[in-house]
Amino acid sequence: MKRQIPIFLVFVFGVFMVFQYFSPHEASEWIYKFLMDWIYIIGIFAMALGIWSLIHVSYDKIKHKRHDWGYSVVTLAALFTMMFFGITGFNENGEWGFYFMTQEGLTNPMFRNFFNHILVPIETTMFSLLAFFIASAAYRAFRARNVLATMLLVSALIVMLRFNPYFGDTFGFYMNKTAAWLLNVPNMAAKRAILIGIGLGMVGTALKVILGIERGYMGKG
């Protein structure tokens, strides 16, 4: 009961999703559309579960004054403040209350301000930090020790230096062309080989899940 029903459900829905592709019947497409909408709706409940887990873990850390518990206070404060701005605000009459999403989206000014001045700066800076780590890794790894390492080095340099304004018009033009060719031809060939492998791997994994061979999603118990 605890494990058989989920395995049966996975099989039924998995097989249906495979077969609906081959049956362009109105009823099949109607059910397909329904199931797609359902996934999004259940996803929101899953998100709520995740947020509850975050609150629970942070609260537990604060309650038992575990290592770095102060930062959990920051997390909870940020979470509740942003949620507060996400559901409340000034309405069109200038009264404070439930905030409702308009055609333009969630235009609550503080919600937007938090997005623009907290979320975006942190996210972009975190991604940009990778430039330093990549540079550091490249300094250590990019040595033309053999043919393969030299190929890696040369293709990376061509792609990185293609927009260099100091190369001048003629050399810069050919550099740009070579980089574009590298990205569009050999790069695509190797990526295609990798994609074919990924495709076969994903199909195999999906089959294992549908047939109940792979049951990791159920956890223990």
Binding site: Y40, I41, G43, I44, M47, A48, G50, I51, L54, Y71, S72, V74, T75, L76, A77, A78, L79, F80, T81, M82, M83, G86, I87, M101, L106, F111, F114, F115, I118, L119, I122, E123, M126
Partner: peptide, 20 residues
């Protein structure tokens, strides 16, 4: 880092709630 976790969780939850 912790501020980001809290803000982004609430952001996606709010957006999901309102849109879906």
């Amino acid at each position: 880092e912790h501020l980001f976790v809290g803000i982004s969780a609430a952001f996606w939850m709010s957006m999901g709630f309102w849109s879906t």
